[in-house]
Simulated scan of single mutants.
Amino acid sequence: MNEKDLEFPYSKIKASDGNDTLMSFNMGSPGVEQKISILGYDKTLDIPFFAKFSEKPRAKKLTKNEIRIYRMLDGTGLTPKLLQAVDTDDYVYLKAEFIKGSRPKSRKMTDEVLQLCLPLSKYHLTDKNVDENGLKMSLSHGDFCPWNVLVSEGSIRLIDWELAADRTLGYDLFTYICQVAILFEPEKQLLLAIDDNMRFVKEYFYSFGITDYKPYLKAFAMQKWEYEVGKGNTRLSEKYKELANIL
């Protein structure tokens, strides 16, 4: 096929990453957050890589945020290694280490997944360590779910950090529990899903010297409610609204 006949901006991607790469492209789901995902092989570096190319304003913002997180957490092993970042007025291009791994065998919360939540409490994107209600805050992944967790070479790694932000403690832990319940037990009340995982909830908050987790659970429910309302996702927003009202 002639390059000019392609229905996506291949020339811009090529300009970002040179000529010595082999790439496959996924156009992504239509919408304000649509971005092109790329799985490629860099012949110069002799390594595979994963990349994102964003042109839409919302998608550009998310990719910029992910680049920021990769730079902040460089060397921690929590994120893939950032290989290249290009930020222009027209587009944002992120190129990162390709992590070869598998999804967790169990969708349920485990001790290994819990331990992945804890290190993030050491990091902050802002100087704000508590919210307006005095609840402790730290960096959170934002979409901490089984589909963003990879088991690679005996360790667990997190991918897709574009929603990362400072939030109240427990946000990622509660996200994992609730999103799994919503997907696989859609009729189940979220509070029951939390109760089913109470051992992990208590262990998480005890590690920070917090005995009452409920204010953090309510803050999480309110944040998720507002987020899903903003996306126009009525079903999910109602689930989180119900959880917030119970608390």
Rank of each mutant, 00 (worst) to 15 (best):
N148A: 07
E162W: 02
G170T: 01
Y171V: 00
C145L: 10
T168P: 00
R167K: 15
H141K: 09
D143V: 06
D143R: 03
F144R: 13
E132P: 00
Y123C: 14
V151I: 15
R157S: 10
G170Q: 06
Y171Q: 00
H141D: 05
A164L: 04
L163G: 02
K122S: 12
V151L: 14
Y123F: 15
G142T: 12
L139E: 08
S138N: 14
D143Y: 00
K136H: 09
L150E: 08
V151C: 12
K136E: 09
Y171D: 03
N129W: 07
E132D: 09
F174P: 00
H141W: 04
T168R: 04
M137T: 06
Y171L: 03
P146H: 08
W147F: 11
D172F: 04
K136M: 08
S140D: 12
D172P: 01
E153A: 11
A165P: 01
I159H: 07
K136F: 05
W161M: 05
D166H: 07
L135P: 02
D131H: 10
L173Y: 00
H141E: 06
F144Q: 11
K128N: 14
I156P: 05
W161L: 04
A164P: 11
T168H: 03
K136C: 04
E132V: 10
H141M: 01
C145S: 13
N129G: 06
W147D: 14
D160I: 14
W147P: 06
S140M: 11
L139K: 09
L163V: 05
S138C: 14
L158E: 01
E162V: 01
S152I: 13
G134E: 11
G142E: 06
R157T: 04
S152W: 08
Y123V: 15
V151F: 07
K136R: 12
S155H: 14
S140Y: 08
L150I: 07
G170F: 02
K122T: 11
H124W: 13
S138G: 10
P146F: 15
F174W: 02
L150H: 05
W161R: 03
G134C: 10
L139Y: 05
S155P: 10
T168F: 01
G154L: 15
S138E: 11
N133E: 15
V149L: 15
G154Y: 15
I159F: 01
R167I: 03
L135T: 05
D160R: 03
E132M: 09
V151M: 13
V130Y: 09
L163E: 00
